[in-house]
Amino acid sequence: MIKVENLCKSLSLGEQTLNILTDVNLNVTAGETLAIVGKSGSGKSTLLSLLAGLDQATSGHIYIQDKDLSAMDEDGRAAMRKQHVGFVFQNFQLLPHLSALDNVMLPLELSGESQAKRVAIDWLTKVGLGERLDHQPNQLSGGEQQRVAIARAFACSPDILFADEPTGNLDEHTGEMIEDLLFDLNAQLNTTLVLVTHDETLAQRCQRQVHLLDGKLIEHQNDTQSRSN
């Protein structure tokens, strides 16, 4: 599903070069759940943004469904995201002036889905917000906002779901509920899940964990525990 070869990302800071990711290699198979863990500043979010085609690598290749992202332009990567990718963010990223329903409908409408409203209502009902379709983000709690974000992410039936610290802005109890929802839906739809977190408990729910340390990848297998989850 995802194949990463010799991926490097560096930034020029005047005359100096800051290496964020160095020679990263990674394979993610279809339906697999992968956690990218590491300390703040280790390059987790940068790796996620590169895998999702949100940013361009300095060198190396990323293949999604055998298509080379580095060979695509910005619009090509956007088309790929529309077709294959869903997102859940730490700060929810809901549009403040749109209702919960409109937020979920947004990616469906961008994909030209004719039944966008029906699909969005179904998904909001699935995440337990069937009664709050017309509520705006500022009228919802943090957990509810993240549930809207999860409904939005799954609404287009993506092949891969990228999640950036999905429980990072939530209290422990709400965080656990969101984790359950995310993993349950993921299991039901057999979506490939790549999540970035520094929460060890959350990471351990994934089949596999990779650690980023100073921009380099160190891999750990965690099959047994994740399966049990």
Binding site: F87, L95, L106, L110
Partner: peptide, 16 residues
């Protein structure tokens, strides 16, 4: 800016 970034993230082309 955030709206535009999110739209791009959700797969909207620059023309869209």
């Amino acid at each position: 800016y955030n709206t535009a970034a999110l739209l791009r993230c959700l797969g909207a082309s620059s023309a869209q």
